[in-house]
Simulated scan of single mutants.
Amino acid sequence: MTPDELRSACLAFAGVGEEFPFDEANSVFKVRGKIFAISRLAGVPLRVSLKCDPELAVQLRSTFPAITPGYHLNKRHWNTVVLDGSVPERLVREMIEDSYDLASPGLRSAAGEAPLGGPGPW
């Protein structure tokens, strides 16, 4: 996943904005004023921090070495993903969607969009 693809994936949901509250280098994606993704899009390697259900967060970390507890975030509720190709892009996109849903419960349902299923085969 490229920086542009990551930005597009985060901005693809209703009500999302990109802000730079920390500095010009760190993109913060918010919905309803709540953060659901943070990335230094020019960083090498590219990383993104995403909200995650605590039980799923532990499972993902034990399955993928590129997924670690959230960098400078609540380690129980956030994962940081190194986008080096070792985590399937489909899973990264599902994690972005899950993070959005956790930050904005009910928003997609209210808009008539289907809710997410459980973790897939990745």
Rank of each mutant, 00 (worst) to 15 (best):
P115I: 03
T63W: 00
D53C: 01
T68H: 11
A110W: 01
V58P: 00
G118C: 08
N26D: 02
N26G: 03
K51F: 01
P21E: 13
L41I: 13
V87H: 08
E24S: 10
D84H: 00
T63F: 00
L116N: 08
D53S: 06
E24H: 05
P119W: 10
T63R: 15
E5F: 10
H77G: 02
L56C: 09
E24L: 10
I38W: 01
D4G: 00
Y100R: 09
G70K: 05
S39V: 02
D101A: 13
E89A: 14
A110N: 08
L73E: 01
C10T: 09
T2P: 05
V44C: 04
C10H: 08
T2E: 07
F13K: 13
A110S: 12
K75T: 04
L83Y: 08
H72L: 05
R61H: 01
L46K: 06
G17I: 15
P3C: 00
A110E: 11
Y71H: 08
G85K: 03
M1E: 15
V48S: 08
F36Q: 12
E19A: 15
T68S: 14
K30S: 04
V81T: 12
S99D: 05
V28C: 15
S99T: 03
R93D: 03
A42M: 09
I35M: 11
E18C: 07
M1F: 08
G106F: 10
S109P: 02
R40G: 12
E19D: 14
A9T: 09
D101S: 14
D84W: 01
P45R: 07
E97I: 11
P88N: 04
V28Q: 11
G106Y: 09
A66E: 12
M1R: 15
G70S: 09
C10Y: 07
A57T: 12
G33T: 07
L91I: 11
A103L: 06
E5D: 15
F36K: 13
P65M: 13
F22V: 09
L6K: 09
V16E: 06
L102W: 00
W122I: 04
V31S: 02
E94T: 12
R90H: 06
G17P: 03
R40A: 12
V16G: 06
S109A: 13
S8P: 01
A114S: 06
K75P: 00
G118A: 14
T68G: 06
L56E: 15
E24K: 14
P121V: 09
G120F: 10
N74C: 05
L107F: 02
E97G: 08
V48L: 10
F13M: 04
G117A: 15
G43L: 09
V28R: 15
C10N: 07
A111I: 03
W78D: 05
N74D: 05
W78P: 03
E97Y: 02
P54E: 09
C10V: 03
L91R: 04
G85W: 03
L60G: 01
Y100M: 13
L41Q: 04
H72F: 02
A103W: 07
E5L: 13
D98T: 14
N26E: 12
F64N: 06
R61V: 03
A14T: 05
I96Y: 04
P105V: 09
V16K: 10
